[in-house]
Amino acid sequence: MLSGDLTLDLYLCPFLYQQINATFWTQVRSIINMMDLDQEKELVERAKSNAEAFGELYEKYYAPIFGYVLRRTASVTVAQDITSEVFLKALKNLRQFHWRGIPFSSWLYRIASHEIANHYRLNSRQQVSMESNSNSVSFSDPGIESEVLSAEAELEKHEDFLALHRNISQLPSKYQEVIVLRFFEDKQLKEISTILGKREGTVKSLLHRGVEKLREIME
């Protein structure tokens, strides 16, 4: 009973068991991720010319992207507008998206980060509003208005988040995005570096300095 003995030995040595267990699950996770990426790659290729496949991608990523933009902007209406822009840009540029090991989700997050930065830049200059963008997707749905009102009411209930967001929003954009991606979106440094197109070391130092600056603001 070799496996029984091995299990017993591992239980007797909790540290070793923990290490092997962690390594095992890391490997399992990486295999699953690779499988997911392969499937996603195939889906992205199909989505370039197939509405159903694009719909599948959209359904998969609408909620994460909307959530990310909402947690960056703390405004349901702005999140709604920016999410629309993100998916419109993704759709328009999908044929130019070439798989180079960067997950599709990272590409969407990158577009979203750019759109958020654009939104703040345009608002600060007070020149152009999102609504005046001639390329934006337009649709009228009376259900959306009432839905937005109840979503705004729901957002108001998250007082801790809103207070934290008010402080984060005082930081320069480069710190805001790494803090939100790391702590609110639960992204690892490697993924953040892929999304932002920055080196992992740069992201690490941005995160460190961002947290330090946030601490100063909150004091």
């Binding site: 010319s49 197939n50 509405a51 694009f54 719909g55 959209y58 359904e59 609408y62 909620a63 909307f66 959530g67 909402l70 947690r71 349901v76 709604q80 999410t83 629309s84 998916f87 419109l88 759709l91 328009k92 999908l94 997707v137 337009s138 649709f139 749905d141 259900g143 959306i144 839905e147 937005v148 979503a151 729901e154 957002l155 998250h158 801790d160 988040f161 934290l164 609110f184």
Partner: peptide
């Protein structure tokens, strides 16, 4: 540990999807 808003806009999600698919880019 801050509790984050997890809000879903079903009508917007549906309307945006239709608008995108009808936009003619595909």
């Amino acid at each position: 540990e801050t509790k984050l808003p997890d809000i879903e806009l079903k009508s917007h999600r549906r309307a945006l999807k239709m608008a995108l698919l009808d936009a003619g880019y595909l």
